[in-house]
Design a protein around this nucleic acid. Structure first.
Ligand SMILES: [Mg+2]
Length: 437
DNA sequence: ACCGACCCTGTAGC
DNA sequence: AGCTACAGGGTCG
């Protein structure tokens, strides 16, 4: 195994040459070295470390795959900095994280002074919800649902994160009737404009942009609607200032945290009293940050997959609160107390970025195949394939820099294909092609 | 319960 | 390449 044949250990924003010990920790094509000394169970976030600050999370691929967890719509706080490598902020820490063959490696590259190193491992374990055994849950879900059983092998390790409640609420306050790419920018400007900058602890190795904690409610209270409009928030500017004011009146972050202990419907009802927060955004905040593992944020895409597989009678109906409740109930009936987690795997299996990964599964693919589209040329990479099926040029569909499969024909299948290609981050179409025209 | 307006802007489509 | 037109992980009244 020659070094020259391996991809660079660190991406281009990391300038330092990795130490020899890093090579022991980071995979080189196949497997990490010194596996015998490493914890390999979910609940024991790794203690293993090296001189460059890398640790192992202790998560086998069935428990966590970053590709299915970080850039799939639960958080807008991560950016991909390399092949299967990301940098983002968890609370008061800037985290560099990378997928290994059967584990995940992480290190802290920046932190607030009050963020003690001794807490790092616990913070990571908390953020990735490591006390929830995903692989065990998957077995029960696969027994309950044929569709889930069919697609899940292609989307392993899709965990729910346990994000900060305030951060999650405002991220998804920005999400309604909006494009993913714009949401990313809005969240970023909120952080860089009003959040506390996190000093880098490895500034000699990292030359990328600065990172900031998500602004606290006190920091947000200093932001005017005009500020937000200038930052491109549009009409959501008033939602933000209004929600900040109301949250502070209710008791701020401490009050939000109390929602974790109560029933999910109480949390959702409370969140819905905030301006700009409806059932969908409330469910996102509750599932992504308030331990409401059973909640399902029902958007148009979730409704589409629900009508396709569970509630055919609801096809074509508008996404009213009543319908939202019906879909929610159907998911809980089928998947149980962690229905929100199950929904997450189903949701990401619909992403256009993964189109073709599961042979002949989605309705969109069925339409394309029925019309003889070249989508049939996509090879079956097999379950648990690591390589992307779409975006072979390495670009990320979610950043809009291309990478989508090129379509050549006009009319017929091509018009269907173009409606697919148009999907923003990725989601397969929710409306019949003819209706889209 | 239903329906139209809605701030922007990244991107598709010429 | 530049432009224009569109549509977007919903929410509100
Ligand atoms: Mg509300």
């Amino acid at each position: 195994m020659l070094r020259s044949t391996a991809r660079p250990l660190l991406n281009s924003t990391i300038n330092a040459r990795p130490s020899c010990r890093e090579y022991h920790l980071i995979k080189h094509g196949s497997r990490p070295v010194r596996p015998g000394s490493l914890p390999n169970r979910v609940c024991s976030a790794g203690m293993a470390t090296d001189c460059a600050g890398w640790h192992l999370l202790g998560t086998p691929r069935e428990e966590l795959r970053l590709e299915h967890t970080l850039p799939t719509g639960q958080s807008f706080r991560w950016r991909e900095t390399g092949d299967d490598e990301y940098i983002g902020v968890i609370g008061q820490r800037v985290v560099q994280i990378r997928q290994l063959e059967d584990d995940v490696a992480w290190r802290i590259i920046g932190r607030a002074p009050q963020a003690a190193e001794a807490e790092d491992t616990a913070v990571l374990a908390d953020y990735f919800n490591l006390s929830t055994p995903l692989a065990d849950l998957v077995r029960t879900w696969s027994a309950s649902c044929d569709h889930f059983a069919r697609i899940q092998p292609y989307f392993q390790g899709a965990r729910m994160l346990r994000q900060d409640p305030t951060e999650t609420l405002f991220q998804f306050l920005c999400s309604s009737n909006n494009h993913i790419s714009r949401i990313h920018g809005m969240v970023e400007r909120l952080c860089s404009g009003w959040g506390t900058r996190l000093p880098l602890t490895r500034s000699d190795e990292y030359g990328g942009p600065a990172h900031h904690a998500f602004p606290t409610l006190d920091q947000l209270a200093a932001v005017s609607e005009a500020d937000l409009r200038a930052a491109g928030f549009g009409y959501r500017a008033r939602f933000v200032t209004g929600s900040v004011a109301r949250l502070r009146a209710l008791g701020g972050e401490a009050w939000l945290a109390t929602l974790r202990a109560g029933p999910p419907d109480v949390a959702v009802a409370a969140l819905c009293t905030l301006p700009g927060v409806g059932p969908k955004v409330a469910a996102c905040a509750a599932l992504f940050s308030l331990d409401a593992h059973a909640l399902v944020p029902v958007d148009v895409h979730v409704l589409a997959l629900a009508t396709r597989h569970y509630l055919p009678a609801l096809r074509g109906k508008a996404l009213t609160p009543a319908l939202h409740a019906q879909v929610q109930a159907a998911f809980v009936a089928r998947f149980g107390a962690h229905a929100g987690w199950a929904h997450n795997t189903l949701f990401i299996s619909e992403l256009a970025r993964y189109r073709g990964r599961v042979p002949g599964t989605t309705r969109a693919e069925e339409v394309l195949l029925a019309r003889g589209s070249e989508v049939a040329e996509e090879v079956d990479a097999g379950p648990d394939a690591c390589a992307r099926v779409v975006g072979m040029d390495g670009s990320d569909a979610s950043t809009g820099k291309g990478g989508r499969a090129r379509r050549k024909r006009k009319g017929g299948a091509a018009s269907v294909a173009s409606s697919l290609v148009e999907e923003q981050m990725e989601l397969a179409p929710t409306t019949p092609p003819q209706a889209a025209a």
